Computed example of a mutant assay.
Amino acid sequence: MSQYLTTGDGRRIAYRHLAGTGPGVVFLGGFKSDMTGTKAMYLQDWAQRTGRGFLRFDYSGHGDSSGSFEDGSIGDWAADARAVLESLTDGPQVLVGSSMGGWIGLLLARALPQRVAGLVTVAAAPDFTEHGYWAGFDQAQRDTLMRHGRLEVPSEYDDQPYVITRRLIEDGRERLVMNQPLRLPFPVRMLQGTADADVPMDWALRLLDHARGDDIRLTLVKGADHRFSTPECLSLITRSIEDVAG
């Protein structure tokens, strides 16, 4: 059964917390993903087997949490993650960010470096609202978005199209991490598939070049797609967690 945390902004965030040894692991899911996805559940099973503390949750507008997805933004979801981290964990944690969760993890690392023991990203998508969606829209799509405040785009992960809102784009511009110094003073392991059709491999290379820290490594997995959920890929995630956790 999920438990719930009400944030200072009044959002009701669903979560599952597994007690165990530290540093604990906090899983940060992707865009329109929830805490019952393949990677989250694999990490939960791994944490139970190894006695590691583990926390997974749904951003507002996702899964069992309150709110509408269309009303949300990167700033809202980063605030949800910060509330969960500060309210439900003690001491430095290992953040595991998948896709959008990689961006959220970088925002948390910038705001609360003292609470981060290590960072593992899986197909990290920092600044994707700007360099993915906005950059990929043609002028007619941009005009529709700005005029009507929303634009429907097809998704290969859902029968229904994703609704991209003007607020999502404009709020994302306030949260960019690739346009300013990015110091990561803890171990970082970035994982990226070469066959990822959603997050280009070049994004991972640019993040590696942009970030500053003494222990940052990128692993490219030939043939892995954006889901990064084969047994080999999932095992690589847990090995990376163990590597940064010490």
Rank of each mutant, 00 (worst) to 15 (best):
T50D: 02
L55S: 08
D58H: 04
G30N: 02
K32N: 13
D34P: 00
L43I: 08
V26H: 04
A40F: 11
Y42A: 08
Y42I: 07
F31R: 01
S33E: 13
Q44E: 09
W46K: 15
G53N: 04
G30P: 11
S33D: 14
Q44I: 04
D45A: 14
M41R: 15
K39T: 07
G53A: 13
G30D: 14
S60W: 06
G29E: 10
T38K: 10
G24L: 08
M35T: 03
D58F: 05
G53K: 01
Y42N: 09
G29A: 13
S33R: 13
D58L: 07
D34E: 06
V26I: 15
K39H: 00
F31E: 04
G37F: 14
Y59N: 12
K32D: 14
L28H: 11
G24F: 10
G51S: 06
Q44M: 02
F57G: 07
F54R: 11
K32A: 12
D34N: 13
Y42E: 12
G29M: 13
G37M: 03
T36F: 07
G37R: 02
M35A: 06
R52W: 05
L28P: 04
L43F: 07
G53S: 12
G29H: 09
M35Q: 12
W46V: 00
G30S: 04
M35H: 09
Q48S: 12
R49S: 11
R52F: 04
R56M: 14
G29C: 09
T50C: 07
M41V: 15
V26S: 10
V25G: 12
M35W: 00
G53E: 14
V25W: 02
G51D: 01
R52H: 04
R56N: 03
Y59S: 00
T36S: 15
R52L: 06
F57H: 06
Y59T: 08
K39P: 00
M41T: 15
G30V: 11
A40W: 12
T38F: 03
K32S: 07
Y59I: 10
V25P: 10
M41A: 01
G30M: 02
V25H: 08
G29I: 01
D45H: 10
T50M: 00
Q48D: 10
F54Y: 15
R56W: 11
M35R: 13
K39W: 02
G53P: 05
F54M: 02
M35I: 00
G24M: 08
L43K: 03
W46G: 05
Q48K: 14
G53D: 11
Y42H: 15
A40C: 08
F31S: 08
L28M: 11
L43G: 09
F57M: 03
A47E: 01
K39G: 06
Q44A: 13
W46A: 13
R49C: 06
D58Y: 06
